[in-house]
Nucleic acid binder design. Sequence first.
DNA 1: ATGAAAGCGCTAACAC
DNA 2: GTGTTAGCGCTTTCAT
Lengths: 348, 348
Amino acid sequence: MSEYARTPPPTLADVAERAGVSRQTVSNAVNNPDLLRAETLARVQDAIQALGYRPNRAARHLRTRASQLIGLRMSPAQEFTANAAMDRFVHALVEESREAGYHVLLFSGGPGKPETTAADLVRGYDELLSSTAVDAFIVTDTYLGNPQTRWLSERRAPFVAFGRPWADPDATHRWVDVDGAAGVALATQHLVDRGHERIAWLGWSETSFIAADRQAGWERVVAASGRPTDGLAVCVVDTVDAGRDASAALLDGAAPTAIVCASDTLAVGVLHTLAQRGLHPGRDVAVVGFDDSQVAQVVPHGLTSVRQPLEQVALELVRALESLLAREPYDGSGVLLSPTLAVRGSSG
Amino acid sequence: MSEYARTPPPTLADVAERAGVSRQTVSNAVNNPDLLRAETLARVQDAIQALGYRPNRAARHLRTRASQLIGLRMSPAQEFTANAAMDRFVHALVEESREAGYHVLLFSGGPGKPETTAADLVRGYDELLSSTAVDAFIVTDTYLGNPQTRWLSERRAPFVAFGRPWADPDATHRWVDVDGAAGVALATQHLVDRGHERIAWLGWSETSFIAADRQAGWERVVAASGRPTDGLAVCVVDTVDAGRDASAALLDGAAPTAIVCASDTLAVGVLHTLAQRGLHPGRDVAVVGFDDSQVAQVVPHGLTSVRQPLEQVALELVRALESLLAREPYDGSGVLLSPTLAVRGSSG
DNA sequence: ATGAAAGCGCTAACAC
DNA sequence: GTGTTAGCGCTTTCAT
């Protein structure tokens, strides 16, 4: 392989010499152009252009103590569930970060194993933090009373969370979240509007705040519309098989005409059951999922699903981050965004 | 919000003072421990431990001209297709990079628009390169004779490609790729072994090397087994609808008993057709996809699919990168990995 | 085996 | 407006 990167990139000094000014003036031309006389500025910019000068990030970082890097931990990939949302989110975050002048630095948790100890979880953060590699973190998996946010808070590490501090109402960090209850309410209301009388809930059995939150959205709308809830709520683990079995039992028992699910995974399980029984989703039984995964888009006739506004989440997270790093005052209230409903064939 | 990061992280000097040695000795303790007397080393390490010292990356980067960062461009998310592969790949890459002492820096192409000009495409690379933000790039979307690899080569920028230099056999850069033909051959042979006599190919109409490569895998095995190919190859755009329509026409015409598809997207289209006609995938007509996406795993009875060894790809890429950055000689031969077949219900 | 000096490229603080 | 000085935290070179 031939040599690469033969010529070292030009520095401030190179530009200064070419433009016939001091290094500081070049620095000002880049960072505070207003300070320069128009004529000088033009001359410096010409030199910058001609040399293809770009400030060395390491040097700038060392001096300003800002790396312009945002740390994001990749949680271990989950094969079966819809982590497509994560993918969409990362894209949106990279895009928003870029516009704010940041790049996203990916890191992984502890050693390879899927789920590790709290200490392992925190190691990646610790390392990046104490080596001043990133300016701040975006913390995503805050579902349980997970240790990361608490640990980061204690270390006074700058971070913004995607997810409410469910377990810790005293938490003072900035956060952005999607209103799951509102999303499910939207889905349920959609089914009410389409004339469904018996609308079931197929949710998660694990006792998480998110699970409870989503179920509450269903309960609120069904109750408000004077429809029954008795025997119409079933909670299982988040797998296709569990969704299939639970929906079969539901149809045999409470006989709903519509089923709202806590996830697309469960909804796919429902679709399996319907297919087995020769029932048509949307015509015979309406089904709504949550996450608007690829599966929802690709299934025959499509699966109606609650879609998180991840682009907006990314935008708000970056905004919160900028505010945090600028040490602006913070009133303690997070940002709660409303999802939308992607209506497809499975709901009529 | 309370102050964060009150105490600046300890520096070499802090450790040196505490250990009663010079800064240089601490640096050696970190980077060349062999140079120290055992007793001194232990004392320094104690101090490092006690202070929680971690070398400042910016300072080290500035001095050594190595950021320990690998740049990866996120291509705009494609909603409908199975870019789940990308997700899996990024995970694997982050993990492998970590083990090699690198972090992954994500950046996006030009401005928001889905597909931009060649200049835009290259801007992100240029910026990171001339600001010495990353040590090297991993280039992923090398399908067409895309401008990135050529541009990077011309700039003598260090990079490794995921994907062969199809259009440019003279390219001298290092690359890792998955043998698509071998994957499809594997799938086809699987169908031959299960006794299928009329095995169709549902591929991509766009004239890309990858499309041709995959189709060649089918042709090779079908021909070698003495089975017919006439009228059994159809090429369309990579969408579910196209797959549905094309498979309907295939079944009406050439009447295959098995269909090998260039993508899971097309395979899902085939499944739609089968469902419409009341045919059972695997029992009546066998279907095989490509990419082992979430959809393949979640569809009723499962979709047999060719699975790319992305973890291994990531490993080889990082290896190639290390070799490149170490300026080791390179013999010009890339690394070609074989996919595996995830067998599920759709093929029997 | 350990220490002193120099400097990577940049910007903050001050002088002119 | 522009130039000068100093130093961010580290490693490389050379002296001891």
